[in-house]
Amino acid sequence: MRLSAIFYAIGQGFKNIFRNKIFSLATIATIASCVFLFGIFYSIVLNFSNIVRKAQAGVAITVFFDEGLSDEGIKAIGDEISKRAEVSKLVYVSAEEAWESFKAENLGDYVDSFGDDNPLSEDSNYEIYMNDISMQENLVTYIESLPGVRQVRKSAVVATMLTSVNSLISYVSMGIILILLAVSIFLISNTVAIGITVRREEISIMKLIGATDFVVRAPFVIEGLILGLVGAAIPLAAIYFIYKRAIEYLVDRFAVLDSLLQFLSIGEIFTTLLPASLILGAGIGFLGSFVTARKHLRI
């Protein structure tokens, strides 16, 4: 393969775009729409996942010990639990800390009536936070089997709900992304097919002169690749500005939800969205044009 053939194909790919301005613009617009939807959807999903993840991180299992269990016994239970892969953090809460926390949260003005008594003197415990809340049941079963453990308190409803929401988001996002991909490939394939039809005479001349399949097809594939990249770059720029403005607006407007809704920064979103969208655009362009050129150019 001569270098000049590659440069010729690249040059022709660019020229094709300008020769068929209307089709090129239509292709860029359709790819841009798909990548824009993908980007918006991805940003929402990523933020929602982040919120769910943060909520999951706040869900803890509480482990209470048998009455009179020694400090060594409590420590041994803590060591066993810490070895489990699903455990992200283990916090020991002494009976005094448990009572102080209860008082602050529930007793208010009646706190003095208990004097120096600690009704929770046997309620020292471990608060256990998990990496993956869907593993809660396994972990609870395991901890309940440990000697010295009196009771394990869990939040089954919250765990199930968060796990379900997370799964639902994953499935829906994958479904929508697959549909968008199929639509985009169909659209670019149509555009390249129209481009090939428009240039059928030129292609037939090329074939009769003795151009190889590579020389005939390459400009169309390069054209698709460029249209895909441009089609991806435009919505990325739009999302960059829209996302920043939208987050500023939401934070400003709903300051009261600040602790619950912690949005990701544009940098965090773009770390994955930028390469993913460019690869998506280029991939759609390449795949759509390659398959179409191969199908229509067997002369």
Binding site: R2, S4, A5, Y8, I205, M206, I209, G210, A211, V215, V216
Partner: peptide, 10 residues
């Protein structure tokens, strides 16, 4: 064009 498509040097 007839020479370009068969990769004749410019």
């Amino acid at each position: 064009f007839a020479q370009r498509v068969i990769s004749v040097p410019a």
